[in-house]
């Protein structure tokens, strides 16, 4: 559960978030919106990377700002997965465990993504897709109640993509709060239960998949979101 209240973020004279109130309940929420709508800033605020001027964020009922330890509840997978080039996959996953002071049995995770043969290879040798898988593992392995996944499927091969989506549904069914962004709207179909639509720093729509389809009168999410964007004068991505 992530609760955002009255969030305002300005970069100099540019206001990116203009009083965002939104709640991410357990389940999968797709955070969508055109470029420069404030999606990334909102995610970064939840992660503590961006320090907002006003408002509050609570994760699992605890305030985020000024409390780095709250992030133990959060697993994050960035858009650009990158780890130190000279360390092996195994060392990298150990490092991440060190950061959390948590020990996890790595083997099932490594075999889940099929990276057994790469365990002792330096990260610099790994291909883009493989790197993405490492990022996935680093986000999921701590079994955190909240997962923030920024464009998680970009660069994944179809098989991994399917497996990943299965995993997400599995986690959802275990009652986790999952926040997802993707540029590929069709990716969200069958994955997202809820949609939060952000435009120019404001929430335009927040509700379940069904509510969105009702609201727009479109048959699927892809078209519904495209419609929202057009309605609000934005280009379809």
């Amino acid at each position: 559960m992530v609760e955002v209240k009255g969030l305002v973020k300005r970069y100099g004279s540019l206001t990116v978030l203009r009083g965002v109130d939104v709640t991410f309940p357990p389940g999968v929420t797709a955070l969508v919106g055109p470029n420069a709508s404030g999606k990334t800033t909102l995610l970064k605020s939840i992660l503590g990377l961006v320090i907002p001027q006003e408002g509050s964020i609570h994760v699992m009922g605890e305030p985020v700002t000024g409390h780095p330890e709250i992030r133990r509840h959060v697993g994050y997978m960035p858009q650009m997965v990158q780890f130190p080039e000279n360390l092996t996959l195994k060392e990298i996953l150990e490092w991440v465990q060190d950061l959390r002071n948590v020990r996890v049995d790595l083997e099932p995770w490594v075999s889940w993504v099929g990276l057994e043969e790469f365990v002792d290879k330096p990260f610099g040798y790994l291909s883009g897709g493989t790197r993405q898988k490492v990022g996935m593992v680093a986000a999921l392995m701590f079994d955190t109640p909240v997962l923030i996944l920024d464009e998680p499927t970009a660069g994944l091969d179809p098989l991994s993509n399917t497996r990943f989506k299965e995993k997400i549904r599995e986690e959802r069914d275990r009652g986790k709060t999952i926040i997802l962004t993707s540029h590929i709207l069709s990716e969200l179909e069958g994955l997202a239960d809820r949609v939060v639509f952000l435009l120019e720093g404001k929430i335009i729509f927040e509700g379940s998949r069904e509510a969105l389809l009702d609201h727009t009168g479109k048959p699927d999410m892809e078209q519904a979101i495209a419609y929202l964007m057009q309605e609000n004068g934005s280009e379809v991505r």
């Binding site: 992660l47 990377l49 960035p78 990158q82 780890f83 130190p84 991440v96 950061l99």
Partner: peptide, 17 residues
């Protein structure tokens, strides 16, 4: 700069800046 994204990732973990 090569490790910028990783530093960002580190900052999303439960550790202080």
């Amino acid at each position: 700069h090569n490790n910028r994204n990783f530093i960002v990732l580190t900052l999303t973990q439960p550790v202080s800046r």
